[in-house]
Design a protein around this nucleic acid. Structure first.
Lengths: 133, 133
DNA sequence: ACAAGTATGAACCTTTTGGTAAGTACCTCT
DNA sequence: AGAGGTACTTACCAAAAGGTTCATACTTGT
């Protein structure tokens, strides 16, 4: 369980905290989770992770590789061909991400709705009530 | 499963993408996961989520409340007493976070190590090899 | 010849995120 | 009276995250 009342390691609130350090970033969880399907080329990743820019994708891929989550295979061909695969560590992480994916699918309507709400009060002048304190 | 090749909703790559919109932010997953224990006061949260500042904690708490993930209960007492509880939606999300927590606990040594590695090549001059292209 | 695809690098700039420091209103303890 | 605790708010500032654009070196399709 590891709740935040017992502190296992010097830097972490709990196991979740540790995990978050690894997958922090807008795209990393998506990249990792997409790779559970098997090795994928750069282009495939780019199309799968919608909205990601080249810069970001490359950057996060490099970080994931440096972190031992994925492996990069360069075929040394021309035109370039490269693919990315999860390491065993990466695979275990991807599996741990699955429930979040399911949660998102199950609650997609709710999420869509709350995202619209957010957009709404970002557009309106933030009329803040006088705080009770 | 919902992999990114089939796109269920206009804005999302997959369910995971949806989830990430909700829990984006350095502290939200930690807050949510800590609250599975039951209602907690602001101060307790602050102590649990180590390193969080007042500003951030309050801010994320407000967002989570606006998103329907948590509920705020103000006892209207003085000195102030307030506690935060997960909504059913929040609780289901917290449950989906559990595997990540376990992953972090199980792989804490690896995570600690890779974090040290990161720190290392942040300190050193990034001697980049000449790109093959 | 020209456009497009392939996987990246680099420079530049904007937006978002997060931290610090100070303040509020009232209470209790010393 | 002064310090410390409670749950916040606000203003200001630094850093990180992320986006855009241009460029590479070569191939294939038209």
């Amino acid at each position: 369980m590891t709740n935040a009342t017992d502190l296992p390691a010097p830097g972490f609130s709990c196991g979740l905290d540790a995990t978050l350090r690894v997958i922090a970033g807008k795209w990393k969880p998506l990249i990792i989770y997409f790779l559970v399907q098997g090795p994928n080329r750069y282009g495939a990743l780019k199309r799968a992770v919608r909205g990601v820019s080249d810069k970001m994708l490359i950057q996060q891929l490099k970080e994931l590789e440096a972190d031992g989550i994925i492996t990069r295979h360069d075929y040394q061909e021309v035109p370039p061909r490269v693919d990315y695969t999860l390491t065993p560590l990466g695979r275990s992480l991807a599996i741990a991400l699955a429930p979040l994916c399911e949660w998102g699918s199950a609650n997609m309507a709710a999420v869509t709705h709350l995202l619209e709400e957010r957009a709404r009060w970002q557009a309106t002048p933030p009329a803040h009530a006088t705080a009770g304190g």
